[in-house]
Design a protein around this nucleic acid. Structure first.
Lengths: 140, 140
DNA sequence: GTAACTGCAAAATATTTGCATCCTT
DNA sequence: AAGGATGCAAATATTTTGCAGTTAC
């Protein structure tokens, strides 16, 4: 079932189905949060090359399969796009949350970014909102 | 006059006054926007070492003289804190703006981040808001 | 005078590129 | 069969660390 979903996703984005891409997509699907490059390398075991991870993430980004979440600690995380934001254009106005306790990054799909009034002359094209704090699991 | 402001800032943050720190602070004061590590290296001429820039930025961050602004393109920018957020704790809830045309990053001091309702169990500690689009100067 | 800052060298990491080979369609 | 994806080697770029010399207070 997971297999099928993976292949379907790849096909839908006009990508050929290969072992590496399957594996990386699987990692994203297996969990709710976002993954950094090193997360992926670590979790994938010694399966494949660093370089393949770079190239695969780049491809996924371009195709709009994943989006990147900038964090203040210099480590970019990537997360699956829920809706289709194909072609590299993302209009996903959802909020990202980073837990200061466990480090997990998730997309809060339900929470939408409020619209903001900018000073005269400024035009908004994209809004990125990043909240850090304590997540559900760590807040017992 | 700039000189005095610089030294004052350093003193206020319990930092000794050195040439490198003066120069880097000057760069920040000379302009409104945010600077990346490479911006600083480039603008400082061949004056001082890469390593000094790393260490100075780190120190400024810790003292709360500057804060970091994560961007989606993996390049962290730094900007002066207007109010005192000493000790590394920043509660500056202002919005950052990146111009897609000229690349300039500025802090929109006047625009405050709206409070957001998170799902049950989540606790907000800090909010980072990053808007990209077209800035005042590029939008003629 | 002492503690802290700087510059240099070098180590450790991270990212990119070229190319030959293998795999997908 | 053809184009694209992968792995390896190596070139680049980035960041960190150690240490000796210098500077600020």
């Amino acid at each position: 079932m997971m297999e099928q979903k993976i292949d379907e996703l790849l096909k839908k984005n006009h990508l050929s189905i290969t072992g590496g891409r399957r594996k990386i997509l699987e990692l994203f699907l297996q969990q709710d949060g976002a993954l950094s490059h090193s997360d992926i390398e670590r979790r994938a075991g010694e399966k494949f090359d660093r370089v393949t991870v770079y190239r695969t993430l780049q491809t996924f980004l371009e195709k709009g399969l994943i989006h990147s979440i900038p964090t203040s600690d210099n480590s970019i995380r990537y997360a699956l796009c829920k809706d289709d934001c194909s072609g590299g254009q993302h209009h996903d106005d959802h909020v990202h949350f980073i837990c200061n306790a466990c480090g997990t990054t998730v997309c809060l799909e339900g929470v939408t970014v409020p619209s903001i009034a900018l000073p005269d002359g400024y035009v908004t094209e994209q809004v990125e909102m990043l909240i850090s704090g304590v997540c559900k699991s760590c807040n017992h």
